[in-house]
Design a protein around this nucleic acid. Structure first.
Lengths: 253, 253
DNA sequence: CTTGACCCTAACGTTACGTGAGGGTCTAGG
DNA sequence: CCTAGACCCTCACGTAACGTTAGGGTCAAG
């Protein structure tokens, strides 16, 4: 049972041009072509399209989606579960937006005035680097958190850029290991996530292995952090978590 | 107390380039400039920016936002209330997405198989036919709204399909008139939009000419309805609006 | 056969910025 | 005062994800 491009467009509420585009960029190629050159899509193609649309709904670029879905390790069920968490996170954000509107209306009605920061607190994207101290506060002791606050307050723009570059490099290394099929408890994986621990230690606060394990739990429990990793590679949050645990176990001797 | 473009960008979690762009297109112009030519934003500018970001969050184009906010009748409190409603709707949509994911997961787990339509039922855009009762609620009295609710609750898939076909036919007729250069106050144009009024009367609720005029105002004031018409043909929302007004005038004798 | 709906490829245009270039301004510290 | 880094300006090319149009072939019902 094959569908032409128009059928699919109507079913999926997208345009024919969109499907042409997805074919062109290799995101969703029809499984067959008629003798006349018509694109013919199967049910499996439709399933792929549904997945694309879910990712699109979550703000992924088409290139990101293509990479995620072309990964041999891509698992539809797992992807759906992760997407579910991300959408739940988006719902939280909408709640926050509603809260901000209510606060603004109250302010307009002569109630409590808002600070300028409050006016925009919900907008913008999640940046994990901005939340490491939040992480610390949640998982660590007060003294080390103070260390973190003292450090970060002195960082320059270049400092943050260097931190970002280093974090990106670490993540790229982890992805490479995943791509090679290196298990999360392999010494190479452990070394990679230990670089992450040292990054935190260097840039934010003293980070013991024990502390790192606490963070690892959070990386898979908190959808914001998980989404950040899943955006890079499906399954990455879990991999990082597992590697961190293995690394801590190794360090414990 | 004035803010430079960098201050505002950091506060609002947008880029400097974004603020430049908004200045260029007249969406958000700084209230002042320093002698050096720096953009200087006031608190009121920040309030405007917040409003822009809310609209942006709701998917409005920058041009739509600019038109809305440059309207002399623009009222911030009223806008916030409308935005609140729209965000609440978005939250409902997210719920529907979650439901679709759950349904898909169930299907994958060997549960009830999904139809191809179900796979994509949440995706796609605003369909005015699904919101006529919302229109009524906003513009009409409660009794007629109850009539509408009683009617639509009984409609089948086929009913909706027939309604859609009829609506599309009416729109096609209107487009044809526009293409022929028929003025909006020509009897032919009036007859065409009167078919629209009767469609509502038949499918939703009693729709007087007076009511229809109220709807017409909404069709150009509410970007969702306006976008719906503009998608069919540029200028169509205004044309329909004008024709409805002329039609009501004619009916008034 | 005819016609309308649908298909194809090709290509320019649009929206909302991202990025880089080249140069001026501001301010704190030496 | 000088310096250097952060920040400002305008200008302009590039990008992602299509929308739209052009020109022509295919399919199926009447």
């Amino acid at each position: 049972m094959k569908h032409t491009v128009g059928d699919v467009a109507r079913l999926a509420h997208v345009s024919v041009r969109t499907l042409h585009h997805y074919d062109e960029i290799g995101l969703l190629k029809p499984s067959a072509h008629s003798e006349a050159g018509y694109r013919l899509y199967t049910t499996e193609d439709l399933e792929q399209l549904q997945q694309v649309l879910f990712y699109k709904e979550l703000g992924f670029t088409l290139e990101e989606i293509r990479e995620l879905m072309s990964d041999p390790a891509f698992d539809r069920r797992e992807a759906l579960s992760t997407q579910r968490e991300m959408i739940a996170e988006q719902a939280l954000r909408l709640d926050a937006l509603l809260g901000l509107i209510d606060k603004t209306l109250t302010s307009l009605g002569g109630g409590i005035q808002m600070t300028k920061e409050e006016m925009f607190e919900v907008f913008g994207d999640f940046d994990p680097a901005e939340h490491e101290d939040e992480v610390k506060e949640r998982w660590g002791n007060t003294e080390a958190y103070k260390v973190s606050a003292r450090r970060t307050s002195k960082y320059t723009k270049d400092d943050w850029a260097r931190h970002k570059a280093e974090a990106d490099d670490i993540n790229a290394g982890i992805v490479a290991l995943m791509d090679e099929g290196v298990p999360a408890d392999d010494p190479r994986a452990m070394d990679a996530v230990d670089r992450h621990r040292l990054l935190i230690d260097t840039w934010f606060y003293p980070c013991s292995h024990e502390m790192h394990v606490g963070l690892a739990e959070m990386y898979i429990a908190d959808p914001r952090f998980k989404a950040n990793y899943e955006k890079i590679r499906t399954g990455m949050a879990q991999y990082v978590h597992d590697a961190i645990l293995a690394c801590a176990k190794r360090a414990a001797g």
